[in-house]
């Protein structure tokens, strides 16, 4: 196996709010292989955005290490750190907030070019900015380059954010819900553009989304990691995850996706969760954090120990579920019995 370009080793991250400590990420292990399509999927509050920020170095992990090209990022200094810094970029969710409203597109994009001495003169900078804008499909460039963000549409702005992330010639781009706030009609074209960039520019994408359908489209040839309350519960090749998921949480997520065909949606197997409420991060249940909602809950097993991410059977999947990894299979838990 190739050396991963980015790697999480036992990364945890918690935030302090007043006196309470909120554990947002717990013991995450994750490898990002060069040029792979990797998707982080989960509900809001599952820690996927925090993972993205740790990947980009915008947040430091509370514990654990982040490796970039095999080297611990926290030990990188000087030129090495700058190299990492420039190599991993982020595209934010909200195209309305990610561009500084006081700068023109040219200004926003030329700052990093000058800062990293990628260009020397204004002419070079303009040419480079124009080139990048063409890459992201903002043509004709002269209609855009001297505009302010508020004069562009949401989709155009998102393309500018992507172009700006490309200014430092990154190897990895973390796309954090990058199309969720763009009009549905433009989503696919932006996704296609990102996928094309992988081929032409050799950029690895880590795609963060709450939308399994998008993840499926984007990472069909790659992997999906499903996150729940600060942990990865299942990770594996996209076709397996989306067609034959094993982990109860992934199963329930998939069953909740409405299909374009209403008949299909209606006939789809509905998984009834035992509870609709997502536990608070400050009051995480003991054992598997999904157990209060899990339809296949095994009393005395799931609520005792925290399951670790382990290879599952013969498949390429790795998942964190105590009954499954003990080879017990899933049996629907009868809530009535309990009551």
């Amino acid at each position: 196996m190739e050396e991963p370009i980015l790697e999480f080793k036992k990364i945890s991250r918690s935030f302090k709010k007043g006196r309470t400590v909120i554990p947002v990420l717990q013991d995450i292990d994750l490898q990002v292989q060069p040029l792979e399509y990797l998707c982080l999927v989960g509900e809001s509050g599952c820690g996927k955005t925090t993972s993205g920020k740790i990947l980009t170095g915008l947040l430091r992990p509370s514990s654990g290490q982040l490796f970039f090209e095999g080297r611990d990022v926290s030990t990188l200094k000087g030129a090495d750190y700058t190299h990492y810094r420039r190599s991993v970029q982020i595209i934010h969710q909200d195209p309305y907030a990610s561009l500084n409203p006081t700068h023109t597109i040219y200004n926003s994009m030329s700052f990093p070019l000058f800062r990293h001495k990628l260009v020397k003169t204004r002419e070079q900078a303009r040419a480079r900015v124009a080139e990048l804008l063409e890459v992201v499909g903002l043509t004709p460039v002269r209609d855009v380059i001297d505009k302010y963000p508020h004069q562009l549409s949401g989709g155009q702005r998102q393309r500018v954010s992507i172009a700006r992330a490309l200014t430092t010639q990154p190897k990895v781009i973390v796309a954090d819900e990058s199309v969720s706030m763009v009009d549905v009609s433009i989503r696919i074209s932006i996704l296609n553009m990102l996928m094309a960039m992988r081929e032409t520019l050799g950029v690895t994408f880590v795609f963060i989304t709450h939308d399994l359908a998008l993840a499926k489209y984007f990472a069909w040839k790659g992997r999906i990691a499903v996150m729940y309350l600060g942990r990865i519960v299942e990770i594996g090749p996209t076709p397996e995850i989306t067609l034959s998921p094993e982990h109860p949480y992934t199963k329930s997520l998939l069953s909740a996706i409405p299909e374009p065909d209403p008949d299909k949606t209606r006939t789809k197997e509905q998984i009834r969760l035992r509870s609709e409420d997502i536990p608070r991060l400050t009051e995480l249940p003991a054992g598997c954090s999904f157990h209060p909602r899990c339809p296949w809950f095994v009393p005395g097993l799931c609520d005792k120990s925290v399951p670790s991410l382990e290879p599952f059977a013969a498949s390429e999947l790795r998942l964190a579920c105590t009954p499954l990894s003990q080879g017990k299979g899933l049996n629907l838990f009868e809530t009535r019995n309990l009551a």
């Binding site: 810094r85 420039r86 970029q89 907030a97 990610s98």
Partner: peptide, 25 residues
């Protein structure tokens, strides 16, 4: 704001962030 975070990710200097990203706003 996201654009400040983006500036950090782009490794722009502290001075740039204060005077070119935050101050103008």
């Amino acid at each position: 704001r996201d654009y400040v975070e983006a500036a950090v990710a782009l490794d722009l200097s502290q001075a740039h962030i204060i005077f070119r990203e935050i101050l103008p706003n």
